[in-house]
């Protein structure tokens, strides 16, 4: 079953000197029940803007977001509040997102208070249960966030996101600020909870090795658009878009000899994106048509699955 269907979402911001920053342009995809969709791309490609737009933490400029078949973009406050219970988000910096003046128990139970769920004792029970499932000690309830390490604060943020039994969680760089040894603990926790609660997760990260590990499908973004989307195995073993290819080969991997990177330059300014395919200015396989016509994200290979936006595969 499709849980979330995103159709042609765009978000622009006013930029400097009257320019328009096209942070997200015309993005469409689906998330199935219990599926983990990884969203990967370099800084500024619009991952966070996309994640936030889906939950209407910022209002998208255009497009629709169908949650269980219903478009949530036009919903009024009251209706949105009930939908929001099902859609939660976890951020990169758990410290910034946890009010330092509140005890951990209060922080985890706060969503229950806001939505007025259960009696006091029931809420306390729920908080205790959440503390348990994210692997925090029970005495954490009466302590403050600053008494915890980065990894443990991320556990607090996860417990809080789970308080309302959501169906979908957007995890925006949820493990990016953590050390390797802590990162693996949190990845394991998220994976375990995802299976146990059959959660759908949109897992946003700039780190393709993390994305590869946790995702069923991967969407690769470049300058506000999805350039390739498909099953993890296929995208990793057989990347079709030249950008996906470059991204993969740029990751330094232990024990592998380095291959020289084939990408020059940096990501262009999203308020002045290149014509045609936005990647053409850096693409090692650029053709004339790439500078003029923007390729559509579409299925080119019936055998392999997924979609690519690239003229190399024009028939």
């Amino acid at each position: 079953m499709t849980l979330l269907e995103v159709n042609n979402i765009s978000k622009t911001f006013p930029g400097r000197n009257g320019a328009i920053v096209r942070a997200v342009s015309d993005v469409s995809f689906c998330v199935e029940d219990g599926e983990v969709l990884g969203v990967v791309g370099e800084s500024g490609c619009g991952k966070s803007t996309l994640g936030r737009s889906l939950l209407r933490l910022i209002e998208p400029s255009a497009g629709e977001v169908l949650y269980e078949g219903r478009d949530i973009i036009g919903l009024n406050r009251k209706d949105m509040k009930s939908v929001r219970r099902d859609l939660q988000i976890i951020f990169q910096d758990p410290f910034g997102s946890l009010n330092p003046r509140h005890k951990v128990g209060h922080l985890i139970g706060e969503p229950l208070d806001v939505h007025d769920i259960g009696s006091r004792t029931q809420r306390l029970e729920k908080v205790k249960e959440l503390v348990e499932i994210v692997g925090l000690p029970q005495n954490a309830i009466d302590r403050y966030p600053h008494e915890f390490s980065g990894g443990q604060r991320q556990r607090i943020a996860i417990a809080r996101a789970l308080a309302l039994d959501p169906k979908l969680i957007v995890a925006d760089e949820a493990v990016s600020a953590l050390d390797v040894s802590i990162q693996s603990q949190i990845i394991n926790l998220i994976a375990k909870l995802q299976k146990r609660l059959s959660l759908s997760i949109i897992f946003i990260s700039h780190d393709l090795s993390v994305i590869r590990h946790v995702s069923d499908r991967i969407a690769v973004m470049y300058l506000g658009r999805i350039v390739e989307i498909g099953p993890t195995e296929r995208v990793m073993a057989n990347p079709r878009h030249p950008y996906t290819h470059s991204l993969l080969s740029a990751i330094p991997r232990v024990g592998e000899k380095k291959s020289r990177s084939n990408l020059s330059g940096e990501v262009p300014d999203p308020s002045d994106p290149p014509s045609g395919c936005a990647f053409h200015s850096r693409c090692p396989k650029v053709m004339d048509i790439c500078k003029q016509v923007r390729p559509k994200l579409m299925t080119h290979f019936t055998d392999v699955g997924g979609e690519v936006a690239c003229h190399l595969f024009d028939k």
Binding site: D179, S181, V254
Partner: peptide, 24 residues
């Protein structure tokens, strides 16, 4: 040894990562 085992890229996707308990 533990650090090398724990990195996602050295593991099969979807498997549990061999984690190092505790913190630095």
């Amino acid at each position: 040894e533990a650090l090398l085992k724990t990195i996602p890229a050295s593991n099969q996707p979807g498997t549990e990562l061999p984690a190092i308990p505790g913190t630095v």
